[in-house]
């Protein structure tokens, strides 16, 4: 990974499909939805964005739950807090963190349905039954979606929602489409009963154009952009989910200002000892141009309002870097200077 020469700043620009300007009101509205799902190919920085969205909401005073679905790079590590467990735990003021794993979610769901722990232990802890449940395709994902839905419906004693914002760090692309489409699928194929009812309500949550949206994260590279575009298409056709923001992560900040370019090109006529510098500058410019091409392709074909997040170097995301992301989100929402 090429480290950026310029100190990382919130300088990266926002992009939007040709013929429209970035509407900060619209961005703000998306960032204020109750349920925000963050999806994208593995390794593009879903967790970093999810953490930034969650911390931003929590700092703005909203009780926020960050749900991790099978995330290998955990949000806990990025937030420098203890690893998430199966139950929501408050890790910062107003910010709860919770992990979702198929066995954990299955257990919770089963206990909720059965309401009788000894029976659960007897049946579900049985080796054969464990095996059997594992062989039902997507049952694990379905119960995780159920858990996510359950947390959005939890209320406090005063009747208000327990969590005002729920950020879901979804699994990698293919799996997240499966994951999010399960509710509708189960609702459609189940006979009337407890499962169908639950699935209907989950589907209503996913498909709500008022309360939920899907953010798509990508990198300015061929495959991540392709997967991002597939996800956008799937969100529209199969998931019927509202569009959130596009995010192109790890964009190299431009090394040279346009007027500096001519100066650097002028080195060509200089001595041979200058050639290595020219070579390094060109390799960097090539990378930038190549990234810009992919970012543009994503924006034009997805039609999403898209933010670009800067490449912060190879090291893992630090708390300070989260602030860079949050600042960019604030700016795009026309709310500069918040946070800290």
């Amino acid at each position: 990974m090429e480290a950026s020469q310029t100190k990382p700043t919130a300088r990266a620009v926002s992009l939007c499909p040709s013929g429209c300007a970035l509407d900060s009101g619209l961005v703000r509205e998306r960032l204020n939805r109750r349920v925000q799902v963050v999806a994208g190919k593995g390794g593009v920085g879903r967790t970093a964005l999810s953490a930034a969205l969650a911390v931003r909401a929590a700092r703005a005073g909203h009780r926020t739950l960050l749900l991790e679905v099978d995330a290998p790079d955990s949000a806990a590590a990025q937030l420098h807090v203890a690893p998430a467990v199966d139950e929501p735990r408050e890790v910062m003021n107003n910010l709860w963190l919770c992990r979702m794993s198929p066995p954990g979610a299955m257990r919770e769901y089963a206990l909720m349905v059965l309401r009788f722990k000894p029976l659960y232990n007897l049946v579900f802890e049985n080796r054969l039954v464990k095996y059997l449940l594992r062989s039902i395709p997507s049952l694990g994902e379905f119960t995780m979606l159920g858990k996510a839905w359950f947390h959005t419906t939890e209320n406090r004693v005063d009747g208000g929602p327990k969590y005002e914002r729920v950020i879901i760090d979804a699994p990698a692309t293919g799996h997240s489409v499966t994951f999010l489409s399960l509710a509708r699928l189960v609702a459609n194929v189940s006979p009337p009963g407890i499962m169908k009812q639950a699935a209907e309500r989950m589907a209503a949550m996913v498909e709500s154009d008022r309360d939920a949206c899907l953010h798509v994260v990508t990198l300015p590279e061929e495959m991540p952009v392709n997967e991002g575009l597939e996800l956008v298409a799937a969100a529209q056709d199969r998931l019927r989910m509202a569009r959130g923001l596009g995010v192109v992560n790890r964009v190299l900040p431009p090394l040279l200002e346009p007027e500096e370019r001519a100066l650097v090109d002028g080195l060509e006529g200089g001595g041979p000892e200058l050639q290595p510098y020219l070579r390094a500058a060109r390799a960097r410019a090539d990378r930038e141009a190549w990234q810009a091409e992919h970012a543009e392709r994503f924006v034009e074909q997805s039609g999403l309002m898209t933010l670009q997040l800067p490449d912060l170097g190879a090291a893992g995301v630090r708390l300070a870097d989260l602030d860079v992301f949050i600042e960019i989100l604030d700016r795009a929402a026309g709310e500069g200077g918040a946070g800290g």
Partner: peptide
Amino acid sequence: TISRFTGTE
């Protein structure tokens, strides 16, 4: 018990 959880179908 399992079918209470998954449905018989």
